[in-house]
Design a protein around this nucleic acid. Structure first.
Length: 519
RNA sequence: GUGAGCGUAGCUCAGCUGGUAGAGCAUCGGUCUGUGGAACCGAGGGUCGCGGGUUCAAAUCCCGUCGCUCACCCCA
């Protein structure tokens, strides 16, 4: 096979795509009833946006982002990095070669507009060019001047700004918050409620329910209030959506991970306790003691479970405000007859979460059993340069995983074809074309064969396409101006009802078909 | 990045210790010139993932490589 989709991405074909549409449509409808509006976001953003929001130490930022080299700036970056800061380490000719390469590339980029002609860049390049001239002319290897020139070249090279570095979005919350700030949405009345639907990109090893281009349906609530009732309503909406799409056996887990006052204290305590039991942990968890102690709680290793069970719990370390917030959240959920399972080990991978966190798991997903994760992120708007008073809460549903679970539960799309036009005889095609157009104007799905087929063949094809009806158009129908409507049945239906047939005028046919479609 | 399993027709797979590449389903045509689902007959479709080695002979044995899948890490 010559071409195939690249690693970790895939096609979603009909009829499966119809299920996707139905699920996404359900999200639009349910979210609408809670007052959310859709935000359509760009698929790429400045790298810094993700680095700042998701967290510099996360794997997402460190190794999983797809960076776009829109202007060939990465090549410039490499050329610059090749120039050593301390040229003594290299032979003189090597040093000059690296510098020449960089200088040539920079000038070429400037000439072809790939390097932005800002004042700073122009000044730096001009200076770089003249320094390079000095380097070439200079012939005394150990002169102080020569060393100075080399250092100046390195310094000047650092001054050149290659422009924005852009990445495909690994998640959308950062983009939503960026848009919220950029458009001054904090001046809108009440809370700003937004949802988004679309692809995200992470360069991970693919696995069941995990792709490099994957899809999320998410919602964010931004505004001045952090009242737990808002958290509860967000969760209520999420569950309403899962109920609408008939997700079976979904389980809701909640936790509170504290705020910027009490979480660090807990993390420190946890770290200290972990150090005491270090030798009882596996290599991965030992590493996480330093990198991300909270993640140790996530470990699935059976032999670590007894150790983890004895670790201090964040619920005992929350500050008064967080404790009260969490308690009120539980009351608010109870008010809505929602019964979450508290999971003290539920932590989020992204830096920006605080206080409320929640997750929903569903069956049929292998080891990737979370279909949705979310939580509160009160500091994020401020972190990204927005008004400090703005709070936020949101979630993201992993659509790929949701689909897997729905399909596991037996969800399938019926064929959408309402009518197959079985025409035959030399004079009937124009009538069939006219009828097909009429039916389609009434939003019916119609298949019209381009070439004449024997009636038996037509019906056979209609059946295999899964059409609900066939309309037969032959000489006789033309003469009497009545179409023959034949009901077809899905293959699994009992044969006893098969083939019911009647003659109808065009008007009656239309009425009958439009009614049967909604039924 | 690490580990394991698997690569033969569009799909699911058979093909033993080397001896001319197969089945079922699907597709197309016919039996069937105004009546579907069935049956029967026929057709098309494969450098057996790729490269090298052993051999008179390799889908089969050996080495390498690429791809897919699942799991770990991480995460939705």
């Amino acid at each position: 096979m010559k071409f195939q989709a690249i690693k970790g991405v895939r096609d979603i074909l009909p009829p499966e795509s119809a299920l996707w549409n139905r699920v996404e449509q359900a999200a639009r409808e349910v979210f609408h009833t809670y007052g959310y509006g859709e935000i359509r976001l760009p698929i790429f953003e400045a790298i810094d946006l993700f680095a700042r929001s998701v967290g510099l130490e996360t794997d997402i930022v460190n190794k999983e982002m797809y960076m776009l080299d829109l202007h060939g700036s990465l090549a410039l970056e490499y050329a610059r990095e090749a120039i050593p800061k301390y040229p003594e380490e290299l032979s003189e000719s090597d040093f000059e070669r690296y510098v020449r390469n960089f200088v040539e590339q920079v000038n070429r980029a400037l000439g072809s507009d790939r390097l932005e002609k800002t004042r700073e860049n122009l000044v730096a390049v001009e200076r770089l060019n003249s320094l390079y001239e000095q380097l070439r002319k200079g012939s005394s290897p150990d002169s102080k001047d020569q060393l100075k020139v080399s250092e100046a070249i390195w310094d000047t090279a650092q001054d050149i700004n290659f422009g924005f570095h852009v990445a495909l979005r690994p998640e959308a919350t950062a983009s939503v918050v960026r848009a919220y700030i950029e458009h001054g949405m904090h001046t809108r009345p009440g809370n700003v409620k937004l949802y988004y639907i679309g692809p995200m990109f992470r360069r991970e090893r693919p696995q069941k329910g995990r792709y490099r281009q994957f899809y999320q349906i998410g919602a964010e609530l931004l505004g001045p209030s952090d009242h737990p009732a808002l958290d509860a309503e967000v969760i209520e909406m999420l569950l309403a959506f899962f109920a609408r799409v008939n997700l079976k056996d979904a389980k809701l887990y909640i936790n509170s991970i504290g705020d910027k006052n009490c979480r660090p204290k807990y993390v420190k305590l946890l770290q200290d306790e972990l150090q005491k039991v270090r030798d009882k942990l596996g290599a991965d968890s030992q590493r996480r003691i330093e990198t991300n102690p909270l993640r140790v709680l996530d470990s699935k290793l059976p032999e670590e479970q007894p150790v983890i069970d004895k670790l201090p719990r964040i619920a005992d370390c929350l500050c008064d405000a967080c404790r009260e917030h969490y308690a009120e959240l539980k009351r608010q959920l109870a008010l809505r007859r929602i019964e979450p399972e508290e999971n003290w080990r539920l932590v989020r991978g992204l830096d920006y979460y605080m206080r409320t966190t929640f997750e929903i798991t569903a069956p049929g997903l292998g080891s990737q059993n979370a279909v949705c994760g979310g939580g509160r992120y009160d500091g994020l708007v401020e972190l990204l340069g927005g008004p400090a008073a703005t709070k936020g809460i949101g979630f993201a549903i992993g659509t790929d995983r949701l689909m897997l679970s729905l399909q596991e539960g037996g969800a399938a799309e019926p064929c959408g074809l309402d009518v197959f036009l079985a025409w035959f005889g030399p004079e009937t095609y124009p009538a069939a074309v006219a009828l097909s157009r009429k039916l389609r104007e009434h939003n019916l799905s119609v298949e019209l064969p381009a070439q004449e087929m024997k009636l038996g063949k037509s019906l056979n094809l209609a059946d295999r396409l899964g059409a609900r009806h066939a309309v037969i158009i032959g000489e006789e129908e033309l003469l009497t101006k009545q179409f023959t409507l034949k009901r077809l049945f899905e293959r699994r239906e009992p044969h006893t009802l098969s083939g019911e047939q009647k003659k109808l005028t065009e008007a009656d046919l239309l009425e009958y078909l439009t009614k049967s479609r909604t039924a």
